[in-house]
Amino acid sequence: MSKKEITVLTDVALITCIVQRGLADDIIRAAQDAGAQGATVYYARGSGVRERLGALGLAIEVEKEVINIIVATDQIDHVFEKMHVTGKLDTPGMGFMYVTPLEKAATYIPHEIVMKLSR
């Protein structure tokens, strides 16, 4: 049996941000400017503050976009803050975001970087 080696990343965290449909692109750009590598977006439907806003709730889209961004633990605060500001999440109904600690992750890592860091 030949030995096969895989590389896993540690010190990773997941930032999830739920915003109204159509707003994800700007937030992702802000996160990338802050050093995030990539993002996954999926569509969802959510409720909560919208129902409690009365007539104003009509201005808020029911359809949401959920942004998943994996960051290094050192980046969490910087990326989190940039996304928070860009998404104007301190406005009622604009969305919700949270950070989840992750145990490990794996993806493509350029070969020379693997060589350099694993030594």
Partner: peptide
């Protein structure tokens, strides 16, 4: 859940 009371600035920021 009760109705949310919003400040005028929030109304502006939503609209």
């Amino acid at each position: 859940p009760g109705k949310l009371r919003v400040r005028p600035v929030d109304v502006y920021r939503i609209l």
